[in-house]
Design a protein around this nucleic acid. Sequence first.
DNA 1: GACAAGTATTGATGTTCGTCGATACAGAGT
DNA 2: ACTCTGTATCGACGAACATCAATACTTGTC
Lengths: 128, 128
Amino acid sequence: MMSVTDLVPGAERDNVSCCTPSGAHPMSAERAASLASRFRALADPNRLRLVSIISASEGSEACVCDLTEPLGLGQPTVSHHLKVLVDAGILHREKRGVWAYFSLVPGALDHLAGVLAEPQSKLAAADS
Amino acid sequence: MMSVTDLVPGAERDNVSCCTPSGAHPMSAERAASLASRFRALADPNRLRLVSIISASEGSEACVCDLTEPLGLGQPTVSHHLKVLVDAGILHREKRGVWAYFSLVPGALDHLAGVLAEPQSKLAAADS
DNA sequence: GACAAGTATTGATGTTCGTCGATACAGAGT
DNA sequence: ACTCTGTATCGACGAACATCAATACTTGTC
């Protein structure tokens, strides 16, 4: 990935009185939206708990029937949260018979971790 | 940190037909809420761009006047987003004269990255 | 084919969030 | 003190979200 330094143009204000614009550019709107949508999937306590349970389960997979009870939520709500996580590319869904098994997408959380990791947050990187 | 395996009790269902509960427990509601609130601060495209600009600025700090223009948002909106990031412990606010300078809280993003990082997501860890 | 069980979808409801305009606050200079 | 400028707060509005009850879909079993 590139470093945070690839900011957008159009901001070359020679405002002497204030701070140093440094030609500052945000990351592209597309990348920001893409990352934000994935962080939004993790921005709910119950979804974090779902990921926690799934990653702790043997084989790192669990079905809906295992997830409704420890969270104290209804089955439709759990199913909704799982869909959000699947749509975000964080969970993988595999239907075996009547049951739907959910597992972590390998590297999905790692990739987000890499985005946040130093040096000084590669938030402006170009990939994914 | 501990591993994801510290799931909550109260879920010892001997449901033979379905998956293996494995005594599955979500992470504590408190930890889930704490982490979710920080991810929620990152779950907005404009806030990600703010963090990007700030981390790319020289000295890794920037004031509001540098941030409104590249985002195309009004000053009150930018101020609001910055407050959300400060409240989440991600940004630090220092007022020098009339200007408010925002910088990354050292290690804040790193900590979140560590939560997401392998092995198999330490989402159930106990710290912070 | 009919039934049962696990799961997904739909519709509704209350809440939270992002954004803006208007306004209030704070510090610097005259 | 007054003014100017940068920043924060307030009130409002529309959109998005989390949750639930009800219902539809799907797969295995009889």
